[in-house]
Design a protein around this nucleic acid. Structure first.
Length: 311
DNA sequence: AGTGTATCCTGCAGGC
DNA sequence: TGCCTGCAGGATACAC
């Protein structure tokens, strides 16, 4: 999906288009992105005024009157596309799921090819309960390296799986987890609690650096993600390991490898991210799930189709 | 507590 | 050309 930087980019682009707009009508074209019957959902939103737009983790939040929240989780392929009136040719909705029609004549479309995304209208209390179940925001001032280290110490999960767990840290997905681990020199399969204080400090820095850099670049477009203005995310050109199976590491020239665990691909450089000081990779990792460096995966190559060159 | 697997869904690339 | 397989930025639920 859209991870934290993509959600943040959408939020920034959406603000001028939707703040101050009053929803006149809601049209649900695919009910499976809702968590309640469409009639009830549409009734809640009738005549609601959008007062602010924000983000929590990977969720885009349209704040309404009465402290209610329209919470949008973009899933893998969700997009929020505002149109002021006449359709311009930027990013045409190919799979509209929900259309919000404003009093002004403008329209906001939640478009989602795979429909893994969700759109919910929550009360202040419902939203707060939801938010409390999510981990800390990695870009918050209060999120320190020592906090990260202390939290990592409580889990035996592989550190890449740990970073993807929204209850532990919010907003990180597979792309930025892999990039941050690469920059920190930490093998993705290392048990979270084996990460030392020094490594946690490096990881803390690299997480922030990657997320901030991606926000500045407008996110990462592999295929479906678009900014609210319909543009692509340029961070795709700065990716150092994600999707680069069998390509040379930018730092040492060794070949980037792909591992599969936790049902997701992990990309790493075996030289820059040794599993341990003594054994360069998990003792049993190679025979089970590690792919030969000479066999780039069809899926990873396919996912990276059409992107630009290395930065 | 973790892992592997399956589920929701569509589109696309690669192999044959 | 077509058919089949596997993969994809996410989240969750299940059995082991």
């Amino acid at each position: 999906m859209p991870e934290l930087p993509e959600a943040e980019t959408i939020v920034r682009g959406l603000r001028p288009a939707v703040i101050g707009q009053r929803i006149r009508r809601v049209e649900v074209l695919h009910e499976d992105v809702l968590r309640e019957p469409k009639a009830a959902f549409a009734r809640k939103l009738h005549d609601a005024l959008v007062v602010a737009v924000g983000r929590r983790a990977k969720n885009v939040l349209l704040r309404l009157e009465d402290r209610r929240v329209l919470a949008v989780n973009l899933g893998m392929t969700g997009r929020l596309l505002p149109f002021s009136g006449a359709p311009d040719g930027a990013a045409r909705p190919g799979h509209p799921a929900v259309r919000f029609r404003f009093e002004s004549g403008g329209v906001l479309i939640f478009d989602d090819t795979r429909r893994f995304g969700t759109v919910e209208c929550l009360t202040d209390a419902e939203w707060r309960e939801r938010s409390e179940r999510m981990g800390p925001e990695p870009l918050a001032r209060s999120y320190t390296a020592s906090r990260l280290h202390a939290d990592l110490a409580r889990s035996r999960a592989p550190v890449r799986s740990w970073l993807l767990d929204q209850r532990r840290i919010a907003g990180i997905g597979n792309i930025y987890a892999n990039e941050a681990l690469y920059l920190a020199g930490v093998h993705p399969r290392r048990p979270a609690r084996s990460v030392t204080a020094d490594e946690a400090a490096r990881l803390h820095r690299s997480i922030r650096r990657v997320l901030r850099g991606a926000i500045r670049a407008g996110g990462t477009t592999i295929r479906d993600y678009r900014t609210a203005e319909g543009g692509v995310g340029e961070y795709v050109r700065r990716l150092l390991v994600y999707g680069r199976d069998a390509e040379p590491c930018a730092r040492c020239g060794d070949l980037v490898r792909r591992l599969v665990f936790g049902n997701r691909s992990a990309f790493y450089c075996p030289t820059c991210q040794p599993y341990g000081a003594r054994s360069p990779r998990p003792a049993d990792g190679r025979s089970t799930s590690e792919r030969a460096a000479s066999g780039p995966s069809a899926g990873a190559k396919g996912a990276m189709r059409g992107r630009g060159g290395r930065a």
